[in-house]
């Protein structure tokens, strides 16, 4: 966010026209953000405030009695709930693995297909195929592949010449989450490859040429030209993957329903499961609220730390 840097260029002297221009700028800006802000207000802020308010009540999905205020009861219960802490842990592990791995692999893929060699368009499209396939469908297909006698294990068996036998991926508490992680990266990496690609395109080609003339090798060119040139893209990729990772739900809902033995339960899964399947609306709202505050706190701390370094 470098917008606050003082602008270069002269301004017409004199107070009057200048303040008028500033006022105009402000009004126009307000007009430009207002459609988005208004829509977010109506379709996000209001319902979210309603949802969070429910966390302090006895609201149920189905109930003959109106909800009443119960103070912090739901939060007290929440902090004694081992499944909630397991969900937090799983979500954190998922994000901690997926964010660097997916971002890194996506960048590697982008560099790999960012050439003028024939067929690049073909490869870009192929890598993008999982992205355009619905996550529900993907999860169903991978459930087949991950079965004990399914194709993944068949391949492992073949390639290891019968020495290795894959586990029952989704039914083993130690492999279920890794299996979901692998599939999620596989599904999402194509999308971020494309984002990286569009970032790579913004780097002027003459910079590369100049560096090549200076005798910089590939790694040096990557470090000193490409990487700095991807600054804005980097932030975007990291934030989008992080948010997506923290919202992990569909895969779990389709493939494991949080099991086996809570090894794949996540915060959003738990919120939806308790809110809809178990009809405990207020409790689910408490989960969402606590999660919101946690993520907000983490990201604020992160912002604060990175700002200090700048």
């Amino acid at each position: 966010m470098t917008t606050l840097l003082p602008r270069a260029g002269a301004r017409p002297p004199g107070r009057g026209p200048r303040t008028a221009a500033r006022r105009r700028e402000r009004l126009t800006a307000l007009g430009m953000v207002s459609p988005a802000v208004l829509l977010l207000l109506v379709f996000f802020v209001i319902p979210v405030v309603l949802a969070f308010a429910l966390a302090f009540t006895s609201a149920r999905l189905i109930s003959p009695t109106p909800a009443h205020f119960v103070g912090l009861r739901n939060f007290t219960l929440l902090f004694q709930d081992p499944v909630f802490f397991r969900s937090l842990l799983n979500t954190a592990v998922f994000a901690a693995v997926v964010v660097p791995v997916q971002a890194g692999l996506a960048l590697a893929l982008a560099l790999l297909v960012n050439t003028k060699v024939g067929g690049t368009n073909f490869f870009r499209t192929v890598y993008f195929v999982p992205v355009v396939t619905s996550m529900v469908v993907i999860s169903i297909v991978w459930m087949f592949l991950y079965q004990k006698t399914g194709l993944v294990n068949h391949l492992i068996d073949t390639f290891s010449l019968g020495h290795l036998h894959g586990p029952d991926w989704l039914n083993d508490p130690s492999t279920a989450l890794p299996a979901i992680i692998f599939m999620s990266v596989w599904q999402g990496v194509g999308f971020h490859m494309v984002i990286w690609l569009s970032g790579l395109q913004t780097i002027p080609a003459d910079l590369h040429e100049a560096a090549a003339i200076d005798g910089a090798d590939r790694w040096a060119r990557f470090r000193h030209v490409t990487w700095p040139g991807l600054r804005a893209t980097r932030t975007f990729v990291l934030i989008t993957i992080t948010i997506d990772a923290l919202r992990l739900f569909t895969q779990v809902n389709v493939m494991t329903q949080g099991g086996p033995l809570d090894s794949t339960t996540t915060v959003v899964y738990q919120a939806v499961h308790t809110g809809y399947d178990q009809q405990q609306t207020a409790y689910a709202s408490a989960i969402s609220l606590v999660f919101f505050v946690l993520v907000l706190a983490v990201s604020l701390v992160q912002r604060f730390l990175t700002r200090e370094k700048d």
Binding site: A20, R24, L27, L30, G31, M32, S34, P35, V42
Partner: peptide
């Protein structure tokens, strides 16, 4: 130009108020 900006802002405010 100036009136355009004002109109934009005014319209937005009007919509918000009406909706509320």
């Amino acid at each position: 130009m100036r009136s355009k900006a004002k109109r934009l802002a005014a319209t937005s405010v009007a919509i918000v108020t009406a909706a509320t």
